[in-house]
């Protein structure tokens, strides 16, 4: 194979990626598939790489989703902590303390928290309001790349990559602009 062919292939791939946001029938089908899912539970384990810390932070627990806008992240290890997103309100419980955040009040954080919910709900409109959505792969093995549209958000969040199989998300990678990043692996309980 010569270099020219590889360049052409790369160009086609890029064009496909660019086009995908507007009219990708596979993305539409994926969203439709995800939207059918009313309830889901999955184990997760997450590793965070923060420049502040000498070691990565590892945590694990359970994710619970109820369509269309209830998402819980119950961390069991290393310390119990629960984050509940419900109707646009985030309740963060650590120990006895509770913090309540209204997503609308935090335009800088909201898209990050909402991205998983919107993907699970197959809410393409919500996803595309905040992100440029790139689709790759097939329904069986898909990848989404979410790139912030808002420059202010892009200053802290570089991108979110999701990997999944049919109506299940298997991995979420968050890449922050300063190089900190996290990887969450998800295993559906079924």
């Amino acid at each position: 194979m010569n270099a020219r062919w590889r360049l052409a292939a790369a160009l086609i791939a890029t064009a496909q990626l660019a086009l995908s946001a507007q009219s990708n029938p596979e993305l539409d089908r994926l969203m439709g598939l995800l939207a059918q899912r009313q309830h889901g539970e999955a184990d997760f384990s997450e590793t965070r790489y923060l420049s502040l810390l000498k070691q990565p932070l590892k945590s694990s627990g359970v994710l619970v989703y109820d369509a269309p806008d209830h998402l819980e992240q119950r961390t069991a290890q290393p310390k119990a902590q629960t984050v509940v997103l419900d109707h646009g309100v985030v309740t963060l419980s650590i120990g006895k303390r509770q913090r309540v955040l209204r997503l609308a009040d935090y335009p800088q954080v909201a898209p990050l928290i909402d991205s998983i919910r919107a993907t699970l709900a197959g809410d393409r409109a919500a996803l595309e309001r905040a992100f440029q959505v790139g689709f790759d792969g097939s329904l069986e093995h898909w990848q989404l790349r979410l790139t912030p549209r808002d420059p202010a958000l892009a200053a802290t969040l570089a991108r979110i990559d999701m990997r999944g199989e049919r109506d299940a998300i298997r991995e979420v990678q968050v890449m922050q602009a300063d190089g900190d990043h996290s990887v969450m692996s998800i295993t559906p309980r079924e």
Partner: peptide, 10 residues
């Protein structure tokens, strides 16, 4: 703990 949570970005 807060930094490590999903709200940790801010």
């Amino acid at each position: 703990e807060l930094v490590a949570s999903p709200a940790g970005l801010s």
